[in-house]
């Protein structure tokens, strides 16, 4: 892709001075792009300002937070972080982060594996009942979450899984997220089958074809799936709220709420500080994945 700097900003120098018309046109281009960029920057700042404020405020004292809408702290301090990390419970925030990871990691891995398998099956094989099964899969996409909350709760209670992380990640191991399955199927549909056929001619069986050919080609799609699943699970509040009752097992999302409930006078700066920390994993993962994410999208196509 050509960046703006690839194009000459001004015509190559000539002996005679540029005409009035040329000058006018050039000025007009410069003015219009100035306006455009200013507008974009302003809108962008407005969008991101709450986040900037959040980060700034986490370094403010509790009293300063409500006295000024400006994000920059007058006397920056780490007090919010220190206090927040300790929490009002016997555990530090580290426990809650570890708890979150105990849900997120199995869930992301399970999602990646099961959704790829199911999508591969639907996209590439003919089997009896395929149409019906696919319709059911898509139907669950349209089903509101709340509808299944109670039956699911009863099911997991019967299994004796309450107050464990199993109800939170076990469904993901069974391709419970129809949206991700659908996403990978759509991606697979755009990939010509010849590469898989070539692999079969080369002697690969179905599993080897999947592992050595399909998965690498699907990499960008699988990374996006992992990324979304990671962020959604980190932010999931309702799931843990329903199934986790012991404070020791709380993930970050619940722990944040905990610090609001537990004290009469909220320590807003420590809440904000922990919120910032809670955001960090998602951001870090996103920026780490971004490269292969974009790379994958731009190189996914195969030359004909």
């Amino acid at each position: 892709m050509a960046s703006i700097s690839d194009f000459p900003q001004t015509p190559t120098p000539r002996s005679e001075p540029p005409s009035a018309l040329e000058l006018k046109l050039r000025r007009r281009t410069r003015v219009s792009s100035t306006i455009r960029y200013t507008l974009l920057i302003v809108v962008g700042l407005i969008m991101i300002y709450p986040l900037i404020w959040l980060i700034g405020a986490s370094f403010k004292s509790n009293s300063e937070i409500f006295s000024s809408p400006w994000f920059w702290p007058k006397e920056p301090s780490l007090q919010g972080y220190v206090e927040g990390w300790k929490t009002s419970t016997p555990y530090t925030f580290a426990t809650f982060f570890i708890n979150s990871m105990q849900i997120v990691i199995p869930k992301v891995i399970g999602t990646a594996i099961s959704c790829t398998l199911v999508a591969y099956g639907f996209a590439r094989f003919e089997f009896p009942g395929k149409k019906i099964l696919f319709t059911i899969l898509i139907a669950t996409l349209l089903l509101p979450d709340v509808v299944t909350r109670i039956p699911q709760y009863l099911l997991f209670r019967e299994l004796g899984w309450l107050d464990t992380y199993l109800p939170l990640f076990a469904p993901a191991w069974l391709a419970g997220d129809a949206f991700f399955v659908f996403m990978i199927i759509q991606f697979l549909r755009a990939i010509p089958r010849e590469m898989e056929e070539a692999a079969r001619v080369d002697g690969a069986n179905t599993a080897q074809t999947l592992l050595f050919i399909v998965v690498p080609i699907l990499r960008p799609a699988i990374i996006s799936v992992c990324l979304f699943q990671f962020m959604w699970t980190m932010n999931d509040f309702l799931g843990p709220l329903i199934y986790i009752s012991t404070v020791e097992k709380y993930p970050v999302s619940l722990a944040l709420k905990l610090s609001i409930d537990a004290t009469e006078a909220f320590n807003w700066n420590s809440i904000l500080a922990m919120t910032v920390l809670a955001l960090t994993p998602s951001l870090v993962v996103f920026f780490m994945a971004q490269k292969s994410f974009i790379e994958g999208i731009s190189s996914g196509g195969v030359k004909g």
Binding site: P192, E194, M195, E197, A198, A199, R200, V201, D202, G203, A204, N205, F212, I213, P216, I217, R219, S299, V302, G304
Partner: peptide, 29 residues
């Protein structure tokens, strides 16, 4: 199965494995 028939095939759109270097493409089988 195709792999057991003792055949090799060249496809119209080449069907090279996009994530493998030429060397690995050749030696995959």
């Amino acid at each position: 199965v195709p792999g057991k028939r003792g055949i090799a095939m060249v496809f119209q759109n080449y069907a090279l494995y996009p994530h493998m270097k030429v060397r690995q493409n050749l030696s995959f089988g």
